[in-house]
C-alpha cells in the first residue's frame, strides 16, 4: 500500500513540477501541457548523430533519471512513507546526485556536437562551485539532528524548523540546490540563448523525454530535500502528513523555478567566485554558529 502511495505521489509531483516549469517559462498555465509535449516527443523521430559515441549518448539521459530517482529513495513523505531509511540518508542523497554530473558529461560528450560538449563540461565547472555548498549545510542539519537519517532530521525540527534555526544554511542550500538542478539562472549547461540547448541540443524523441523527465525528477528531488532538511518535512498543524510534504515540495519547486526567471543567467566565473569567496566562508561560519547553537540552545 505504501509503495503504491509513494509511486503515485512521485508521478503526481513530477507532473506538477513539469506543469509549473511550463507555466513559469511561457506565462501560461496549461494543465495538459506536459502531457501534450510528451506525446509530441513520443511521435518525434529519434535522431542518432552520425559520429556519436553511441554508448554515452544512450546512457546519459537514463543515468540522469536513475540518479535523480535514487536520490528520492531517502526522502520521506511521511513517517512510514519512505523507500529506504538509510542511516546515512543525507549523505546518500548527495552521493546519488553526484551522478547527475556523470550523466551530463556523458550526454554532452556522446553526440560529438560542440554545443553539448561545452554544456557537459560547463556543468563540471558548476559542480566545483556548488558541491561544497551542498555538503556543508547538510552537515549543520545533521549536527542538529545528531543523525544522518532523513527521518531523524525531520523529527529534529519538531520544535522549530531549520529555516528559522539556521536561515543562513537554508539560503546557501537553496542556492546550491538550484545550481545542482541547473534551473535558471544557473542553467549554464542547457542554456538556450548561449548554447542553443547545450546538452539537450542533439536529443530528440524518446531520448529527450527521458532527459527532460530526469530533469524534472531532479528538480523534484532537490526541492524535496530542501523541504526535508529545512522546512520540517511532513510536519504541519493538521491534516495528513503526506499532504504537507506535497504542498511544501511543490511550493519550493515553484519558488525555485520562478525565482530564477527574474535574474539574468549567471556567468560561470561569477558563480565560481561567489561560491568560493563568499559561499564557503559563510558555510563555515554557519557550521560554527549552528555548532554553538546546538550546544547552547538545543531546541
Amino acid at each position: 500500500m505504501s509503495s503504491f502511495v509513494l509511486i503515485a505521489s512521485l508521478i503526481f509531483a513530477t507532473y506538477g513540477v513539469a506543469v509549473i516549469e511550463e507555466w513559469v517559462s511561457t506565462n501560461r498555465l496549461r494543465l495538459a501541457g506536459p502531457l501534450i509535449s510528451t506525446l509530441r516527443l513520443l511521435g518525434q523521430e529519434n535522431i542518432l548523430p552520425r559520429k556519436s559515441d553511441r554508448l554515452f549518448f544512450e546512457v546519459g539521459p537514463v543515468l540522469l533519471l536513475i540518479a535523480a530517482l535514487l536520490s528520492l529513495a531517502v526522502i520521506p513523505l511521511a513517517p512510514g512513507l519512505i523507500v529506504t531509511d538509510l542511516a546515512t540518508g543525507a549523505l546518500f542523497f548527495n552521493a546519488a546526485l553526484a551522478y547527475v554530473l556523470v550523466a551530463m558529461i556523458m550526454a554532452g560528450w556522446g553526440p560529438d556536437g560542440a554545443y553539448g560538449m561545452i554544456g557537459g563540461w560547463r556543468f563540471l565547472g558548476q559542480l566545483i562551485a556548488y558541491a561544497m555548498l551542498v555538503v556543508m549545510p547538510i552537515t549543520t542539519v545533521a549536527m542538529r539532528a545528531e543523525s544522518l537519517s532523513t527521518i531523524d532530521i525531520v523529527n529534529s525540527q519538531e520544535m522549530l524548523w531549520n529555516i528559522a534555526y539556521q536561515p543562513l544554511g537554508f539560503l546557501l542550500f537553496l542556492f546550491a540546490g538550484m545550481a545542482m538542478a541547473f534551473v535558471p539562472p544557473f542553467d549554464l549547461p542547457v542554456a538556450s540563448g548561449e548554447l542553443a540547448g547545450g546538452v539537450e541540443a542533439e536529443y530528440t524523441g524518446v531520448r529527450l523525454i527521458i532527459f527532460r523527465l530526469g530533469r524534472m525528477v531532479l528538480i523534484l528531488s532537490v526541492s524535496s530535500a530542501i523541504v526535508v532538511f529545512y522546512l520540517g518535512g511532513w510536519l504541519g498543524p493538521f491534516g495528513p502528513d503526506w499532504s504537507w510534504s506535497m504542498i511544501k515540495i511543490l511550493g519550493v519547486a515553484a519558488l525555485m523555478l520562478s525565482g530564477g526567471r527574474m535574474l539574468p543567467r549567471i556567468r560561470e566565473a561569477t558563480l565560481l567566485a561567489w561560491s568560493w569567496k563568499l559561499g564557503i566562508p559563510l558555510a563555515l561560519a554557519n557550521i560554527f554558529l549552528v555548532g554553538v547553537l546546538v550546544l547552547v540552545v538545543p531546541l
Binding site: T88, L91, F92, N94, A95, L101, V102, I105, L124, L127
Partner: peptide
Amino acid sequence: AEFLGVLQIMMMATEMSIMAI
C-alpha cells in the same frame, strides 16, 4: 559498511569526472 560505501560512491563521481576532463 554503509557510511564508507556511500562516501566512496559520492567522492569518486566528482574525482573521476575531473580525471576525464
